[in-house]
Design a protein around this nucleic acid. Structure first.
Lengths: 116, 116
DNA sequence: TTGCAATATACCTTGACAAGCATATGCTTG
DNA sequence: CAAGCATATGCTTGTCAAGGTATATTGCAA
């Protein structure tokens, strides 16, 4: 059963939609159903997957169940991204150097003309 | 064909492994094959998926192809996570308040005794 | 109790995708 | 040219997960 990685869980668009919705505040199943316009069994099934993977938890309020976010799984995704962020900044730096160089040659060609 | 979201691409563990490997530096197909111990067609097929989704690009070096990372798709994933980060800090704050409170009652109960 | 509202689950069908294996393509050197 | 290395692609098969529909469960109200 469900020992799936967080990545497989958030691969499903409807589940991402549910998570984004819960990011603002907790909701009942019915609210999710209406706001996302998806059939109720679909919502329940995705919530079950999310619950078993630790993305959400729920509390009982009479007949309703209120679902809310739990932090850990998405933090794991965030942690996996960390090494790549260093790569991005390197890339930006390279791009800036490149643009600087273009700017230099522009200045050289056009002499003193400056745009802005 | 491949208009898949970045999330579906990184749902596959082997693809995440390839991306992590490329995060340090570019590699040839054969290097990936050896370092990750996966059969060559598997590597090539995953690289194709990654390439068509914009995660990597390659340059030809004689018979080898050198694959390297491209930033955009993972940045999109990172951007999707942004709203949840605010939620995490709220959670941490709540936890800290909670711990503070526990600390207070502990102090109250045990008077002046401090454990480090 | 009966009935209704909210949610969960069972069953079935269908589609997607990854792995394995075989084979093709392309470059390079002798 | 032949041979060989590096990489890509085709085909087949098994698995698994999502959606649809029907039905079960549980709480509440009258």
């Amino acid at each position: 059963m469900g020992v799936e990685s967080a990545f497989e869980i958030i691969a499903e668009p409807n589940r991402r939609a549910i998570l984004s919705l819960l990011a603002s505040s907790q909701r009942s199943v019915g609210e999710i159903e209406r706001q996302l316009r998806m059939p109720q069994p679909t919502v329940s099934k995705h919530l079950r997957v999310l619950r078993e993977a630790g993305f959400v938890e729920c509390s009982v309020d009479a007949q309703r169940r209120l679902y809310r976010l739990r932090p850990k799984p998405l933090q794991e995704v965030d942690a996996w991204l960390a090494p790549f962020r260093r790569f991005w900044s390197a890339h930006v730096d390279a791009l800036e150097r490149h643009l600087d160089q273009m700017d230099q040659s522009t200045r050289t060609k056009r002499k003193t003309r400056r745009t802005r």
